[in-house]
Design a binder for these strands. Structure first.
Lengths: 339, 339
DNA sequence: AAATCATGAGAAAACGTTTTCTCATATTGA
DNA sequence: TCAATATGAGAAAACGTTTTCTCATGATTT
């Protein structure tokens, strides 16, 4: 057994070539199934490579191919509620292709954003995915004119860019139809701030399904707003709702707590449905929350595959792609089957 | 204005050398403040570099220096509640040093773990940080004998490794002392499963401060357990507590809800304190939760700086480093000052 | 005036791969 | 038997940097 380690401590193709008694070019061709070569030689080289644990240096490879098999993920969603599933999807989609992901949290800070973008470019990322908390705000960093493709997920993209988001209207319709399906007729929508595009899209889909006169109450994205909204409705007292579609799970949680405090049974008296399927919240609510899932992981997958495609030079039609939401049935609406 | 772009589309040092009318070696030395050179030449090269937007290719640089200015972050905390702040701290600490972070979510899957570790090594990371959900479990991947330094944060490390975690005992003491300070005398501890090392450390610190006879109730990490525990205590009815130290914020949330349902006022009748400072939950609890913060972001910073130090060849004493927790005072205990 | 020294800048090697040539030998066809 | 072709494998260039070495030129010392 001869020694085969270079000074760097990592096994290089030269060590392998020496060990196998061939040239580095032969080794390279053997391992990449390129070139002409005796099958026996190829097999022997591969065997020895496995034995001594040779793994090609991706830096060297990337230098030559001008592909780094690396993409950058830019996010300002510090808390990560939306970003995390998206990230998981991206990572899952790309790991099979040998692509790694740089995580760059920019916390709404333009200076930090620039630093991260520069660092990514220096490191020759093959592409960038920008992701955020809402589809109608863009990240505080200029991604136009970069030498690599950029895909936007859950954040506003540049004109002529590829952008992915959830189909808010379809999700809201899903929720509203479900409330009707479990027999509810007096529906209300308690949701977030009206300046969110998502809020408006969901509200108008709700109106379409529930009737134009079905009340919509705008507020903020908090439990206490849900609580407050119920207090307001019940103190007004006229034509109390029997089905409540909430703009997110936190609001739904507040709504359910407020109903319980008033002795209103969920789902016996009133059905409540949320939005986001923030599992740790939705599952712990009593009763567990039926809610709309935006399929963020799938959205991440698609974004990952898209940036990969663009990096490989395949063209893609620019524009906003809305991915369908799905219903997650738990117990806060009654009903059991998913369709 | 001559053209200075190479075919790759990115400006290289050769383009810059041509533009400046000097050799590439001179350019390199100029930009890195190395070598001997007329000050005027250096300045001129720097100016032109900025003009044409030259940024050195980190791959090429890394190939030569055998440093990639990249580290890998391995995590199995899919939900990200613990990992996210740690990540933020790591990123924040390293971005100043030009180091980028590969995010590798392995979801408790050994095969996926191996894939990610191999990918990181291929990409010549300068070091790896492993992070998880609890200090007494290790990631399902073998990080021993890797050619790069490994630092563990919030997960069990290999023997002789550098590991960071929060000081559970100190945090629990902080909470218990605070309950006494706001005048509570009949303390109980409602916490998670006893097989967690953290749970046992917190419980024994609680016992030390609250008295060995102060009751400790073990359960699970959920709101409903907090709810249940209060139901049990109040139905037993003997010597009801006036101060409750909860093992995490979710339990505290369940406890507070259960107390409210029984007409017990928080914090007037009973003080409740949580653990984790999971802000989105702690802030939305009514009343907002006083809780113990594990300083995970700071933990991430330290881990980041440590892996950097090790990567640069500086030695560090192996062992478990416990970082202090801090108290975050909101309204669920009464009292106002932090100390 | 000759020898020494400081200065500024370029040439070339190196990092670890992949790829394109080139070339010797073996095989085939007439 | 001689040429044409296949086959196997190596040499060298390339990717974009950094670093070490070399070499003019001009300034300083004897």
């Amino acid at each position: 057994m001869t020694t085969h380690r270079a000074r760097s401590g990592r096994v290089t193709i030269h060590d392998l070539a020496r060990e196998a008694g061939v040239s580095v070019s032969t080794v390279s061709k053997a391992l990449n199934d390129n070139g002409r070569m005796a099958a026996e030689t190829r097999a022997r080289i591969k065997r020895i490579a496995a034995e001594i644990g040779f793994r090609p240096n991706a830096l060297a490879r990337g230098l030559l191919s001008s592909r780094s098999f690396t993409i950058g993920l830019l996010t300002n969603d510090t808390y990560g509620r939306f970003t995390l599933p998206v990230m998981a999807g991206i990572s899952e989609a790309l790991v099979d292709h040998g692509v790694s992901v740089f995580l760059c949290a920019i916390e709404d800070d333009p200076a930090l954003g620039k630093i991260h973008v520069d660092a990514m470019l220096d490191k020759q990322v093959d592409g960038i995915i920008a992701t955020g908390k809402r589809i109608d705000r863009s990240l505080p960093v200029d991604l136009a004119g970069l030498p690599v493709p950029v895909v936007y997920a859950f954040t506003a993209g540049a004109p002529e860019s590829v952008t992915f988001t959830a189909d808010d209207a379809q999700g809201a319709a899903l929720a509203t139809v479900w409330l009707k399906k479990v027999g509810r007729r007096r529906l209300v929508h308690i949701t977030g701030p009206e300046d969110f595009v998502s809020v408006r899209e969901r509200a108008s889909a709700f109106a379409k399904e529930a009737g134009e006169d079905a009340p919509v109450h705008y507020g903020v994205w908090s439990e206490s707003w849900g609580h407050q909204a119920i207090a307001d409705l019940w103190s007004a007292g006229e034509r109390l709702p029997d089905g409540i579609f909430c703009g997110n799970d936190q609001i739904a949680r507040g709504v359910i707590d407020a109903l319980r405090e008033r002795g209103v049974k969920v789902p016996d008296d009133v059905s409540v449905i949320g939005f986001d399927n923030w599992e740790i919240l939705a599952e712990q609510t009593r009763p567990p929350l039926t809610t709309v899932d935006m399929n963020l992981k799938e959205l991440g997958r698609e974004a990952g595959l898209m940036v990969l495609a663009l990096a490989e030079g395949r063209a893609a039609e620019p524009g906003l792609r809305k991915l369908p939401c799905k219903l997650v049935v738990r117990q806060s609406c009654g009903g059991t089957q998913i369709d």
